[in-house]
Simulated scan of single mutants.
Amino acid sequence: MKAIFLSLVTIFILLSSTCDRENTEGQMQLTGTIESQGMTSYQYGTHILNSEEEFYALKSDNLNLDEFVGKQVNVSGSKIEGYPVDGGPDYILVTEVSD
């Protein structure tokens, strides 16, 4: 009985650590200025990040991106699958913003 319990705990720990690695591997770091997004042809995202090379559509489930409008920031997040569409930019789910 103990062997079965230990085996299940070990499997659970291995699966948990694998899931964590997958989440952090998709993280990206971007630097640029956050701007409010007006009308666009691609119609996704609430804000944009203008970097030196390109721009990105942004959204966040836990941060108010309006607080960073007009500021040069570092953004941590991950690409949202299925984007870009309609000639638009990559779509980033923002998890952290720092000055």
Rank of each mutant, 00 (worst) to 15 (best):
L93K: 05
G87I: 08
T18K: 14
L49N: 13
T46Y: 12
G88T: 12
I11T: 11
E35Y: 11
G45R: 07
L14F: 15
V94D: 02
A57H: 08
V9M: 14
E54D: 15
S16I: 05
L6N: 03
M28R: 10
E52D: 15
Y83R: 06
D86P: 03
D20A: 05
L30C: 00
I13T: 06
I4K: 15
D66A: 13
L63C: 09
L14K: 08
G45P: 07
G82P: 00
Q43E: 12
V94H: 06
L63Q: 05
N23H: 00
S76H: 03
E25P: 01
S76K: 02
T33K: 12
D20M: 05
L14T: 13
V75C: 00
I4V: 15
S41L: 08
D90M: 12
I4G: 08
E96S: 13
K2V: 13
I13S: 06
E67D: 15
E53Q: 11
G77C: 07
S7R: 05
R21P: 00
F12S: 08
M1A: 07
N50Y: 15
E25C: 00
S78L: 01
L65V: 00
M39N: 13
T46H: 13
I13L: 13
S36Y: 11
P89R: 09
A57Q: 09
Q29M: 14
